[in-house]
Nucleic acid binder design. Structure first.
Length: 805
DNA sequence: AGCACGCCGACT
DNA sequence: GTCGGCGTGCTC
């Protein structure tokens, strides 16, 4: 029987990033297991924190006196053996704290909330009870300790034992319950009771008969009332008579309870799809850790391949995990999977409430769901015995988490594939260069779906040179050919989709007299105009201020809006086409829960002619009546200082083009650009992924970028620009001799947006081919910089970053 | 992170 | 002389 627990405490620092030994009180020794959460005292004061039991032992190498565990939070481990191993691996490979990783893998509600409380003791003077406690026996520390004088008074009182400090570790997870009924009497007793029922008391009689029918089972009260046609007050009477008892039973919050989901059957596959399914299924059957790249243009039926391959895993008694980008986790997508696998499906995405996420997670953990569909963090879903992992749109950058732990879901999927001995399918119409290159080398097995289902031709793509357009016409967001095409669709009662590329683009306020641009006081970035709230907002720190009427610099009234926001485009288009009904979809109109879904449904039902939106409309929507797609500004992202700019532009254009003409009608795509000859745009025009891949690989080779090199980004930020810069130069000197001569160090450079939230950012990029000492060097770096963390200098490490800005 | 300990300047 | 400012080290 283990007496000592190795506990990972909830204190995310470098110094505490290791297990601490605690004594397990005798009463709990048979109960405590690795993977459970516990509450432990930590530090010299009375601080209590949550922790994860990593291991149970009889020995410890700590030679002080062990403190005992305070409380056990879970009845069963929340992290199983795999989860614990994954925590360790994730922490090491992303240079993050283990505790942060453990928490990332679990639903947010399982993270403890801490409240420092002040409690009265037996010797608390009455006067203090009145003044500080207001008659209460416990008050939150912060509401009382408002001034330094009170704090020191409290310290004195505490030393004298007249008040007590108490750390409350709160579990936020709440289980939803429903009232259920259970008979208290045996069936013969219930039968006997029938004789005592007054004539005409129909409901009482019905209740007795109902309880007999239940035969000792419990039933949810609501269901009981409906089934036996009784009302709640009759139940109350019956309970008073002692016939039945009301008990609370746990119910799952079902995010899709209100959705009417129709069962779908497996579709007939074409030859290419069949080959793909056969290959994947063979790997599933053999429990091979093959990674497939399923490459197929939009409309080539990748989803059907996923679904049938997953069905093969289920047929083996195994489970299946399907990852999709957040944005394409549309109701249509969920319905398709739920329609195929029914109740076996659990869904995890940001649109769910925290309670719903918790409940879906527990269904998975208890083995009640065998199929999981979800966004990035669903890759940690506690499925056992995984038979197949699918990652749709594998090139999407939302699979990479932007803050610690900076993991890529693809890496986690591959790790789990090794653990479970199962294949992984990476699907995309435009695979990331890294993935496609691995398929080229034979590391991944490539499966190609070249044909669109039903042999539908790809849409015609026209490129419009906006430089010429600007010379010929007045300044407008709409070129003449696009406008003509829009007009034409209106007349034919067909629908159009317009995309405004928002990346690196926004509407700002500029003074025409002095050129002043309103900037965020905290960040080096222009404020964006938001007409819905009538404010100027900073997209980085959230700073908000009123729209100026006169120029803050020269007091001129010639202050005007510049740039292109979706609102402004919508306005302009409405002027140009007064008869058109337009729906706008952007961050502002879709912020409310379910708004996204509603707007799409509205457009899908034909209530509008034109849908204007940002990147979010590029994926997942599939409306047969859309025959025109316009990209208003294809190249705003091309100018960004990031070597992936071309790749992103190509992917986005290809993806949005796929929205046109998915049914009987052929589609047409118009791409407006100032760089009509750029290769990313040219290859997108011809739907030529292979051409783009080959060309871009040459560019990457020449520049020494991934996939030819691995990259690590080190960022330092400080309130003082000079401190961040100086520290980075020192860091460069420190790193150079520790790394291989062939390794390239870039920087330090100020980040393209050098100041965010009052902090200045500098970065160093490490490019390497082989660097066996890298992990050790970076870990040392983190340990050595922890002292400076106190002084406000923050160091961050991002392995294989996706954004270099 | 959060706390105690420890060492310096401004007060009773 | 003491109170309280912040810099430093430790938490099983």
């Amino acid at each position: 029987m283990a007496q000592i627990a190795q506990v990972l405490v909830d204190v995310p620092t470098m110094q505490t990033n290791r297990p601490y030994s605690y004594q397990i009180p005798a009463a709990w020794q048979s109960q405590v297991q690795p993977g459970m959460r516990v509450v432990v005292p930590f530090g010299r004061g009375k601080r209590r924190v949550q922790g994860f039991v990593l291991a149970c032992d009889d020995v410890t190498n700590f030679d002080g006196e062990l403190k005992p565990i305070d409380a056990v939070v879970d009845l069963a481990p929340v992290l199983n053996t795999e989860g614990l191993a994954m925590t360790k691996w994730l922490a090491e490979s992303t240079f993050s704290f283990q505790i942060t990783c453990a928490q990332t893998m679990l639903p947010a509600v399982m993270r403890a909330k801490y409240e420092k409380q002040l409690r009265t003791t037996a010797t608390t003077p009455d006067e203090i009870r009145e003044t500080l406690f207001g008659g209460q026996s416990m008050v939150p520390f912060d509401t009382v300790a408002t001034t330094p004088a009170i704090v020191s008074q409290l310290l004195r009182l505490q030393a004298a034992g007249q008040v007590d400090v108490y750390y409350q570790v709160k579990n936020q997870a709440r289980r939803k319950t429903q009232t259920a009924l259970k008979a208290r009497l045996s069936i013969p007793e219930l039968e006997a009771e029938k004789a005592n029922v007054r004539a005409g008391a129909k409901q009482q009689m019905a209740i007795l008969q109902g309880l007999i029918t239940l035969n000792g089972e419990t039933m949810v009260q609501k269901a009981f009332c409906t089934r036996f046609k009784v009302n709640e007050s009759a139940i109350r009477t019956a309970a008073q008579k002692g016939w039945l008892e009301k008990i609370a039973v746990e119910v799952y919050r079902d995010p899709y309870a209100s959705h009417d989901i129709k069962a779908t059957k497996a579709l007939k596959l074409n030859d290419e799809q069949q080959v793909a399914v056969d290959q994947i299924t063979a790997s599933v059957d053999q429990a091979a850790t093959t990674t497939f790249l399923l490459e197929g243009v939009t409309g080539s039926g990748k989803t059907e391949v996923y679904l049938q391959s997953m069905a093969a895993a289920l047929a083996q008694g195994k489970t299946a995990l399907m990852l999709v980008p957040e944005i394409s986790l549309t109701p249509q997508m969920v319905q398709r999977v739920k329609g195929r696998f029914g109740k076996a499906v659990a869904v995890l995405h940001s649109g769910l409430s925290s309670g719903e996420k918790y409940d879906e997670w527990r269904r998975i953990q208890r083995g009640e769901a065998q199929v999981v569909v979800g966004a990035r963090s669903a890759v940690f879903a506690p499925l056992k015995n995984i038979g197949l992992i699918v990652m749709d749109e594998e090139h999407e950058s939302t699979y990479k988490q932007d803050d610690a732990p900076r993991y890529h879901a693809r890496q986690v999927a591959l790790w789990r594939s090794q653990y479970h001995h199962c294949p992984v399918v990476l699907g995309s119409a435009t695979p990331s260069l890294e993935t496609r290159a691995r398929a080229e080398k034979g590391v991944y097995q490539r499966l190609l779906l070249a044909d669109r289902v039903n042999r539908r031709p790809l849409p015609k793509v026209s490129i419009i040179d906006m430089k010429k357009e600007m010379q010929q016409h007045a300044e407008s967001n709409f070129s003449a050919p696009l406008l003509v095409a829009l007009q034409d669709r209106l007349e034919r009662h067909e629908q159009s989709v317009l995309m405004l590329n928002r990346r690196g683009y926004s509407s700002f306020v500029l003074c025409r007299d002095c050129g002043f641009v309103l900037k965020c006081p905290n960040c080096d970035i222009s404020l964006t105009l938001h007409m819905d709230t009538h404010t100027m907002k900073c997209h980085y720190c959230g700073h908000e201020e009123a729209i100026p009427r006169t120029c803050p610099n020269c007091h001129s009234r010639q202050i005007r809006y510049y740039g292109t926001g979706t609102e402004k485009v919508e306005e302009e288009l409405q002027d140009l086409l007064p008869d058109a009904t337009i729906i706008r979809m952007d961050n502002d109109t879709t912020r409310k829960k379910g708004a996204h879904e509603k707007l799409l449904a509205k457009f899908g039902s034909g209530e509008a002619d034109i849908l204007i939106g940002t990147q979010m409309i590029a994926k997942g929507l599939d409306f047969p009546n859309v025959t025109l797609v316009g990209v208003l500004n294809a190249d705003t992202a091309l100018g960004l200082p990031d070597f992936r700019a071309s790749e992103r532009t190509f992917q986005l254009l290809t993806q949005v083009s796929g929205r046109a003409g998915r049914a009987e009608k052929t589609g047409h795509v118009y791409i407006q650009t100032f760089n009509p000859d750029h290769y990313a745009i040219r290859f997108a025009q011809h739907h030529d992924y292979e051409g783009f891949f080959k060309y871009e690989m040459q560019m990457r080779h020449r520049g020494g970028y991934p996939p030819y090199y691995f990259t690590v980004q080190i960022t330092a930020s400080d309130l003082e620009e000079a401190v961040a810069a100086k520290r980075m130069y020192q860091l460069l000197q420190w790193l150079r001799p520790r790394l291989a001569p062939s390794t390239i160090l870039l920087g330090p450079t100020p980040k393209p947006i050098a100041r965010v939230n009052r902090r200045y950012y500098y970065q160093i990029v490490i490019k390497y081919k082989q660097e066996p000492n890298l992990a050790k060097t970076l870990t040392t770096l983190l340990h050595e910089t922890q002292a400076q963390q106190r002084q406000g200098l923050q160091i961050g490490i991002d392995v294989e970053p996706l954004h270099f800005m």
